[in-house]
Structure formats: structure tokens, C-alpha cells
Amino acid sequence: MMWLQNFFNFRLVSEYAGVFAEGIWQTLWISAVCLALSLVLGTVLALARMSKNPLLWRPVAGYIQFIRSTPLLVQIYLVYYGLPTIMPSGMLFDEVQSGIIALTLHTSPYMGEIIRAGIGSVARGQIEGALSVGMTPRQTMRYITLPQAIANVMPPLLGQTAVLIKDTSLLSIIAVFELLGAGLLMFSETVVATESYVTVAVCYLGIYAMMLVLSGIVQNRLGGSAWQAN
């Protein structure tokens, strides 16, 4: 076991256990907030994208293409460095708020496209049935189409959530303290690369493993298709 101790100093890592726990907590709550916001915004985008009014769906389609064709890092820079230069002075988002805004703007088109596919997958008879018993189109969407759509696309939604959790690591570049930020802090104080970065990777893999377990449970409940980790 000597080689392992030479390679990896467990005592040093245990001294930083609190820092990493704080990092994991930050990563998880930032991801949760972004997930909630991007599900809401994603649903709005999906409905707007399916509208028949070209004044509505064309800009939304353009926005989706823009987000999909540019790197997340550039989008984060646009929000964090670019936005303050065009905002009225006095209104300034801190790095956590900017990070949440950027990640939400980035994730919601992906969520929206998944939800749109889900809405398309709801059987026609369900909608016709709801309309024929006197539900308004709005009620049909709210009580019949959307719940079934979301259940149908639960596997890709979970996959996209796993991507979102990994994407929060980029926020460390704008000095948000999260899991990778904890590793960077440890590296800057101790200058041991192996312990710092391998610990970060192990923590991310732990979160990923929990996502896999969760998706297994959901898959059993819904009897849907296998989850694909993108």
C-alpha cells in the first residue's frame, strides 16, 4: 500500500473534507435552482416554439439555435462580463446570480426541446377526449398534455439534469465557489494537484452514481425506456 500513500495523501484530503462538503452543497443547490428555473422557462419556450404565430416561434427558434451553437463558457462571459456594461448602473449581479442566469439561459432550450418532444408524444385521443368533455385548450394543456408529456420524457430530462450538474463546474472560472472551486482552493493552498483534482473528480462521480440510481428508480416507476447519459 506504500505506493498508494505516496501517490495520494489521504490525511491532506481529510483536512479539506469540510471545504469539499461545502463545495458539493453549493454545486447541488445551484444545480437545483437552475433546474427549477430552466424547467419553467423550457416549458414556456416549448409552447412558444409550437405556436403558429411566426412572430412568436421564429425568434424562439433563433434563440434555441444560438444557444446550441455557442459554447457555454462564452455565454457565461456574456452574462458575467458583458451584461453589466449595458445594464443601468447600480444594478449588478454577483457571480453566483450571474452563473445561475447564464446556466438557466443555457439549459432551458435543451429542456424545452425535450418537453416539446414529450408533448408530441402524447396520444392524440387524450387531447381530443379532454376537449370533447368540455375542457378549454388551456386546461387540456395544463391537466392532460403536460403531465403525460413530462412523464414520457423523464429519462432524457434526468440525463440533461446530469449534464447541468457537470456544467456548473464552469462557474468556477468566474470565481463561484462550488465543487471544482473547492479543489482549486485546495490546490492553491497546498500545491498538490493529485489530491485536489482527483478528489473533485471522485465527488462528481459520486453525484453521477446517485443520478444513475435515481434514474433507475424513476425508470421502474414509469416503465419508460432506458436513461441515456449524455
Partner: peptide, 20 residues
Amino acid sequence: LRGSPYLVQLYIVYFVLPST
């Protein structure tokens, strides 16, 4: 490779591998 962010993989290849 799928369970960890690319940025972390980059740090591992660039900073950790040389220290072996």
C-alpha cells in the same frame, strides 16, 4: 468520462498526470 465534467478531466490531464 461521462460522470465527471470535461473541465475536471482537463485539469487531471494537465496537472495530475505530470505529478505522477
